[in-house]
Design a protein around this nucleic acid. Sequence first.
DNA 1: TTTACGCCTTCCATCGGCGGGAAGGTCAAG
DNA 2: CTTGACCTTCCCGCCGATGGAAGGCGTAAA
Lengths: 128, 128
Amino acid sequence: MNIGSAARATDLPRKTIRYYEEIGLVRPARADNGYRDYCDTDVHRLRFVQRARSLGFSIEECRMLLSLYDDEHRASADVKALTLEKIGQIDRKLDELKSLRATLSRLADTCQGDGRPDCPIISDLART
Amino acid sequence: MNIGSAARATDLPRKTIRYYEEIGLVRPARADNGYRDYCDTDVHRLRFVQRARSLGFSIEECRMLLSLYDDEHRASADVKALTLEKIGQIDRKLDELKSLRATLSRLADTCQGDGRPDCPIISDLART
DNA sequence: TTTACGCCTTCCATCGGCGGGAAGGTCAAG
DNA sequence: CTTGACCTTCCCGCCGATGGAAGGCGTAAA
């Protein structure tokens, strides 16, 4: 299976698939003409990565998940730990964003938003 | 004022300050020896940018805020619009993260997290 | 005077996670 | 034989810095 078909089968751009090979995430065989040749397992792993990425796992985390996937003797606790760590990261990011939103919202509320130049948002940014 | 002092005064790394000059955000004068020479206004603008960045504004948005800051005839509505747009972006990001969190959380809940290899998280990622 | 040290300069490379596009090889259909 | 779709490698760009090398400048002490 050529890279184009693999791209259609996994819903990943060709560029991304090549990149994943470059960083050693999913390494296809090569046909005699030099074309990448994706077997079912490769496609399966690409889809695995695609899903993990869409869930917010970084490339390195995907690499770990893949190796856990490959490891028949893995402990499900290891996968769960990775997932819980990810949830923790998301929670921290959520807190940060909520705090930012509150600050911006407070600033926006105090601003008339009319044609006059007086603006508490700018004043706040420019405070000494 | 040399870049080191400006860095201390603004709580920005020297590298970042040089970067801001490179992209034309804050352009200091130069002393005879070629050293960057930051006046009070420059330092003030750097702090302005530092605050705007910490509120989640992009570099380009900071550039706009600076030009609004410089414009004595600005309309506060323009600043407010930028801020509201930023709040909208944050809301979209919040929704996305909440959704991700729910998915991961659901997966983690179904996983025993013990020493056995059976793992619904992996199974879900590997589903055909 | 020399040495040491800290600050400054420019330039180049790197990160993540790709995307765009050039230049050229390969393959199947008409 | 040509067309057009596919494939290859290669290099550059994005954002927002950050790290490091190589070398100049400034001051103080030995």
